[in-house]
Design a protein around this nucleic acid. Structure first.
Lengths: 346, 346
DNA sequence: TTTTAGCACTCGTTAATAAGGAGTGCTAAC
DNA sequence: GTTAGCACTCCTTATTAACGAGTGCTAAAA
């Protein structure tokens, strides 16, 4: 059975987290007793602090130091104590600037978003576009560059473009490629990308054989085209912000974190599409490199489908209130913007 | 009139640079006198060192310390003392791996190159693709997503693909877009990208007017399409390597450098296409943030045209010999690979 | 019973001092 | 011209001491 915290304990825990977030230094009993919202003596507070430490909400760097919040303490703070923060007017304005500018590509929007995010928070911002599993094909185009090389372009219904250079087997004529592409567009439009290969193999083989003179060659070409590793694009901004945090003035620690950020695969692993806003504190991230960091993230949508996730990486001693508000606000704004960007059916 | 350095001075300068590059610590006279290739006493060396310092090739951190090379010293070392280094067999093999893998896009190749570069050198690698000024149009495609949005795709003769989402003015039909695209491809193929707008405005207006019903709208659409800021793509790898250098164990210094690296505009400014291999030492880079770093770079080509530059950023105390060999080798290899990739006419 | 004042104690931080040593510049001898 | 020898500089490291923030406990006050 979990014992509930007393009102006073909650008040003190809140004061400690609040103070530590602001000043990055262990909080002593006297400091708290001087706060306006606290009316007990420092001795009382010391007793409560000892209890809170025993319950696992606080830690003590060493005997004669004040207390700092433990991971559990932060968790409690985020879950129960945080009151929604009214965003600054100027912050809202910065975010609304996203709407003011004119964009020409999904990438531009995400980049700008990353810039705004890290600008407002002074933490590292992460924006990644999900290669949606069920993204549907809008159009295929194969453009021959020369006798043996061509560019294959795949456009999804949400306007994302993938392109790759493919090698055209000898003996396939431009004319045939054209026929092939027309046929494919006719047959495959609207199907999810990850089903395309299967469709070709299971259903279209016969028709293709009839349609094309150089059947085997064309198949090889198609294989080239659809061996795709849909990579998720990652945009980072403000990666060096972590260095301004007093607890990360150590090159070793910083290196670990930046190395983590440089590994896109790792990042994508931690940024799955999710509903609502996520707050992962310290080791909840299940990644040694960022065990002293927190990640706040939210997924944005086009037409109800998740297309990307924005997030903030900062120290566990993070301004949760502010960052949560900003990430929440911006992710919703972004969904709106993109819905407008791909007006109507996406 | 420049006084030439005596053989002995050269020998000593070489020894000092060599030693300092290896051990990152000021080099004393005794250390040098113990080298096999040196046969004078430490006293003699001290005298010569004093002279070399006066001439500006060496510096002394403080009175009772050994000497370190000045920027001028490094420059002399690179220009006159460096002997071409025979690359390790294993290094060559790593680089040749570029050829072994199968690639599907220019981006993949450049990314892989960056990875190999930083892997071999343990410095930060920078690879950027130049948006070649005179890249020639291969194909334009406009793919409507819905009533008001379309994706415009521009393919160059070297297989690079640009895409942007554009807003289709109301009243332009799909049929008209098709006509327009066909017409443009017919008229514009082979022209340099940066001339496209001009061509449309100066020469094609009349014909377009005849061809299209909804002339003004179509023009607006075209404007949207060709307002392009051809961004140069930058790939970095091993950005944190600089932190392993003993002279960069300071968060402040590291932050400056990483901030510099995060600004793509700045980077591109420093990586113009160039002939042959470039070595920029310290302040030669004209950038405060990296005034204690050196950049070694070389441009690679397709069909004789510069398409990108690879480079290494490291401390001024860099293993010039090794890095120069690697960058030189790899840039040439890369040109070969790309020539093969875009076989024949690019 | 709860709260608080008081005080001894802990322990990290900072400053001051000393010892050690790497390396120099100069002088005088080779 | 070269080199051995030596006094001198000054950075680095270790040691010690003073300081002070903060605690935990005890005993008195509420």
């Amino acid at each position: 059975m979990k014992k509930l915290l007393s009102t006073r304990q909650i008040q003190i825990l809140n004061a400690i987290v609040d103070n530590y977030i602001r000043h990055a230094e262990p909080v002593g009993s006297r400091t708290i007793s001087k706060r306006e919202d606290v009316s007990f003596s420092s001795a009382t507070i010391r007793n409560e602090m000892a209890d809170l430490e025993e319950l696992g909400f606080l830690e003590q760097p060493h005997t004669s130091a004040g207390r700092i919040p433990s991971q559990k303490g932060y968790r409690y703070y985020v879950d129960h104590l945080l009151k929604p923060i009214q965003l600054d007017h100027s912050d809202v304005q910065s975010m609304r600037q996203l709407f003011a500018d004119k964009y020409y590509a999904f990438e531009q929007i995400t980049q700008q978003t990353a810039a705004i995010l890290s600008g407002l928070t002074n933490y590292t911002s992460i924006v990644l576009g999900h290669e949606v599993k069920d993204a549907k094909l809008k159009h295929i185009q194969i453009i021959p560059l020369n006798a043996t090389t061509a560019v294959a372009i795949i456009v999804t219904q949400t306007g994302k473009v993938q392109n790759k250079t493919i090698h055209v087997p000898e003996g396939v004529s431009i004319h045939e490629i054209e026929k092939l592409v027309n046929f494919l567009n006719y047959k495959l439009a609207g199907l999810p990308l990850h089903e395309l290969r299967m469709h070709i193999q299971k259903e279209l083989m016969e028709e293709l054989q009839r349609l094309l003179e150089n059947y085997e060659m064309a198949i090889e070409l198609l294989e080239n085209t659809f061996i795709s590793e849909p990579e998720e694009k990652v945009f980072l901004k403000g990666t060096t912000n972590i260095m301004m945090q007093p607890e990360f003035r150590d090159v070793e620690k910083v290196k670990e974190i930046l190395d983590f950020l440089e590994k896109n695969e790792l990042l994508t692993k931690h940024f799955h599409p999710s509903n609502g806003l996520q707050v992962k504190i310290g080791t909840e991230n299940r990644e040694d490199a960022i065990s002293h960091c927190s990640i706040i993230s939210a997924t944005f949508h086009v037409d109800g489908k998740p297309v990307g996730t924005i997030g903030i990486l900062g120290p566990t001693r993070m301004e949760y209130g502010k960052v949560i508000s900003i990430v929440d606000f911006l992710s919703k704004d972004l969904s709106m913007l993109l819905d407008r960007f791909y007006k109507g059916e996406g």
